[in-house]
């Protein structure tokens, strides 16, 4: 295994171009576990921690190298909420939004936020320059992305129109679970439309479109509408049964969680 430690984006992209099979290392918290377990024995690793161009966070543009610790203290409420649930301080000090996007786990903590916002992922390569993909164009399957072998994730790009209310929460065995059985992000937009995204309940993070439609532009949904939304979410998610929970429980918990978050976001 060989490690390349570029300090500029150009050098990183050049390395990526020269070593198309190389693994990208941001915080290292995902890749190192695989290396330690010998699940992966990469020949080449490009460490991105020192690349200053991806380390910044300006307005709507969150650099791929921004850590959970920074997002936890940032101005975006739901992003801060979810960052706080990531691992532990050690993991949050090392782990980055770019790594989370690149790993593309169905349980990726940051992904429901990006999905709810319809955020874009900005990638770059030495040969083809920069391109942007919407989150659902980028996240294509369980741990599968549209990232090409010569590309590097540069940033998450948030939309110009941001929500007026946003909430994130998880359901787990205990109140502060690292790995959740369900996670959800709910947003109410300035035009009173709703955004609902869920993690851990499908091969990728998903949007609960049917539930969003049901809510329409109701700013303060109540009673039977909330119950309908919960039912719609339970029907829309596609969870599996594993040792953490059964499919039936995940469907139920998804509905309850979204209903509560909608309640918290209501006008």
């Amino acid at each position: 295994m060989e490690i390349v430690r570029p300090t500029t984006l150009d050098d990183a992209l050049a390395a990526r171009d020269a070593l198309p099979g190389a693994d990208l290392l941001a915080g290292g918290t995902d890749l190192m576990v695989e290396v330690n377990f010998h699940h992966r024995e990469p020949e080449h690793v490009i460490a991105l921690r020192r690349v200053s161009e991806i380390a910044g966070w300006e307005g709507r543009r969150i650099g791929a190298g921004v850590t959970w610790t920074r997002m936890e203290k940032g101005p975006l409420r739901a992003l801060a909420q979810l960052s706080r649930t990531v691992g532990s301080p050690q993991i949050r000090n090392a782990g980055t939004i770019g790594g989370n996007i690149g790993t593309a786990s169905p349980a990726g903590d940051g992904l429901p936020y990006l999905a709810a916002l319809d955020a874009e992922i900005e990638v770059a390569s030495a040969g083809r320059g920069v391109r942007r993909l919407r989150w659902d164009e980028f996240l294509v399957g369980v741990k599968q992305t549209a990232l090409r072998p010569d590309e590097i994730i540069i940033a998450a790009i948030l939309p110009e129109v941001m929500p007026v209310a946003e909430e994130f929460a998880k359901v787990g065995v205990r109140n502060a679970m690292v790995i959740s059985t369900v996670s959800a992000c709910v947003m109410r937009m300035p035009d009173s439309t709703w955004r609902i995204a869920l993690g851990s309940v499908a091969p990728t993070v998903i949007r609960a479109r049917r539930a969003e439609e049901l809510l329409g532009t109701t700013a303060a949904p109540r009673g039977s509408l909330l119950a309908e939304v919960a039912d719609a979410v339970a029907a829309e998610v596609r969870p599996i049964t594993d040792h953490r929970a059964t499919e039936a429980y995940r469907r139920h918990a998804s509905g309850v969680l979204v209903r509560r978050l909608v309640g918290r976001c209501a006008a």
Binding site: L25, G28, T29, V45, A47, R49
Partner: peptide, 10 residues
């Protein structure tokens, strides 16, 4: 930082 999930090289 957890020294078991960071490369010495980093």
């Amino acid at each position: 930082v957890s020294a078991d999930v960071i490369l010495a090289a980093q």
